[in-house]
Design a protein around this nucleic acid. Structure first.
Lengths: 190, 190
DNA sequence: GCTCACATGTAATCCGTTACATGATTCT
DNA sequence: AGAATCATGTAACGGATTACATGTGAGC
């Protein structure tokens, strides 16, 4: 059976301990979301597929009345996860960034509109940064019991990533201001 | 008609001057590719759609014998592009990064394997950085005639973006080394 | 009693890549 | 003559989001 990176995300989450589909989503939303997002529409069908393939095992948890299916990773699943983690070759990565795309084509805008675009981009990444900072204490706490330092490092990576874009917007705005004042002095100012 | 960001990419490319689908792809490959990739499978059908909607206009270029359809942006298309560039609200952006994803789940690996993963990630971004540097002279030259400084700024952004990941890998490897030596001293060393 | 969080699932749809098919022209 | 590049297109497929549908339990 063909497994995609999303399948391994699920496998990886289950390796940290048995979980329901709902919990996988909740965990992913505060960890992998910023570099690999996942939705219910992928999780539930994929859990069934992985179960059929023997990589995970689901039991209907009669914990309380609430119907809930908890999955655990099997030795076969651990093996598959390990194979993926050490697999040589291309590490796929892609970015789709509307802000930078618009900026690239922003030469038909005037100076103020360009600046507005950069500001909008900046607040977006600032907000994402705040979101990550908000979940940081939880991850730090979890490190001792069960959690590992890699989750923390990855979280810090996410914060640094947002920082990059915030700084980028600042730098671009400054560069824009320089070019603008140059043009003004050349044409004699507005 | 509903237009996606990819439609605006095409519109934006045509605003820089009339082009064939083939040329749009070639231009995108040395500019937007790193933050918004595009393929022929999207371009050709989309060109027909945009033409039908009156946002662009195609003429079969009898330049030489080679069959070639060159599209130009119409005033309606320019308007649509401008509306998009100044549209308020969410700037969509998403990242899918297999390297960081693997790293997040790499606690089942041993130290050497983790380092190998970071190294693989590093060379990937270094290679991408080289690719961008290779196209930089062309963009710099084009700035004077027809090209604008925004393409150059965007290109520099792409380089800085790859730099971020190269630095990140270095930092993470160092952090890993620290944790590793701590563990060694705690357990009495290997 | 009501609302919110827990919980699971499916179907439609969208966006995009890859593979395939075809053919002309230019360069070596 | 043959290879590389220019050039256009379609069909199949894959990955993912969104909307929809449904129901329970906990806390206010």
């Amino acid at each position: 059976m063909e497994l995609g990176n999303t399948s391994y995300l699920i496998l990886g989450m289950l390796r940290k301990g048995p979980k329901s589909g709902y919990e996988i989503k909740a965990q992913a939303d505060v960890s992998t979301r910023f570099f690999w997002a996942i939705s219910y529409g992928q999780i539930y069908p994929e859990l069934k597929r992985l179960d059929r393939a023997g990589l995970i095992e689901g039991v209907t948890d009669p914990d309380d009345g609430r119907q809930r299916r908890v999955y655990s990773i099997t030795p076969l699943g651990e093996e598959a996860l390990r194979e993926w983690l050490t697999r040589p070759g291309e590490l796929h990565s892609e970015l789709r960034h509307e802000g930078v795309l618009r900026f690239f084509f922003a030469d038909s805008l005037d100076h103020e509109e360009r600046v507005a675009l950069l500001r909008a981009m900046r607040v977006k990444h600032e907000r994402l940064r705040e979101e990550l900072l908000a979940i940081a204490p939880g991850a730090d706490e979890a490190r001792g019991k069960g959690g590992n330092s890699l989750s923390l490092l990855t979280l810090e990576t996410g914060i640094a990533y947002q920082d990059f874009f915030v700084d980028l917007c600042d730098r671009l705005e400054r560069r824009l201001a320089e070019t603008e004042s140059e043009t003004e002095s050349t044409t004699g100012g507005s």
